[in-house]
Amino acid sequence: RFRLSPAARNILEKHSLDASQGTATGPRGIFTKEDALKLVQLKQTGK
């Protein structure tokens, strides 16, 4: 289970993504908004 920032949680839910597909870069291993946006971008480019 990942620790998600509220913004990251919202983005992941909106795009039906799972945090385990990305890398948490925030302090103390928190999955940040920026991490979520990177994951969305990867999904949109098909990689």
Rank of each mutant, 00 (worst) to 15 (best):
L42A: 15
Q41Y: 02
E34N: 01
G26L: 04
P27E: 12
F2I: 13
K43Y: 10
G26M: 05
S5T: 13
K14D: 11
S20V: 07
R28W: 09
P6V: 10
I11E: 04
L37S: 09
F31S: 08
A7T: 14
T25A: 03
R3I: 15
A24F: 02
G29Q: 06
E13C: 05
G46L: 09
F2Y: 13
E13R: 09
H15V: 04
V40H: 00
T23E: 14
L17C: 09
K43G: 11
A8M: 08
R28K: 14
L17E: 07
N10Y: 10
R3G: 07
T23F: 07
T25E: 01
L39V: 08
R9A: 12
Q41W: 06
T25Q: 04
G22P: 02
R9F: 13
H15Q: 07
L42Q: 15
I11N: 10
K33G: 07
D18W: 00
D18E: 01
D18Y: 02
D35T: 00
H15D: 09
L39R: 04
Q41V: 08
A19C: 11
L37N: 04
P27Q: 10
R9K: 15
E34K: 13
A8R: 06
E13L: 10
A19N: 07
L42I: 08
S16Q: 14
Q21Y: 04
R9Q: 13
A7D: 10
G46I: 01
G22V: 06
G29R: 04
A19W: 07
F2A: 03
D18A: 03
L12P: 13
S5A: 09
P6H: 07
K14T: 14
L12D: 14
R3F: 15
A8K: 06
G29M: 05
E13K: 12
Q41D: 12
H15L: 01
A24W: 01
T32A: 05
K47Y: 15
K38P: 07
Q44H: 11
P27T: 11
T45Y: 08
D18H: 06
Q21I: 02
G46W: 03
G29T: 01
Q21E: 14
I11A: 07
P6T: 12
D35Q: 01
P27W: 02
N10W: 09
V40D: 10
G46T: 13
E34T: 08
A19R: 07
F2V: 04
G29I: 07
S20H: 09
L12Q: 10
P27H: 08
K33Y: 06
T32L: 03
A24Y: 00
T23N: 10
L12C: 13
Q44Y: 13
E34V: 04
A24S: 09
V40E: 04
T45W: 09
F31E: 12
F2K: 10
V40P: 08
Q21W: 10
K33M: 08
G46Q: 15
R9N: 12
I11K: 06
E34I: 02
K47L: 07
T23C: 10
T45R: 13
L12G: 07
A36M: 06
K33R: 11
K33V: 08
R9D: 09
E13T: 05
N10T: 14
P27Y: 01
G26T: 03
T45F: 11
Q41A: 15
R1W: 02
L17F: 02
L12H: 04
S16K: 14
Q41F: 06
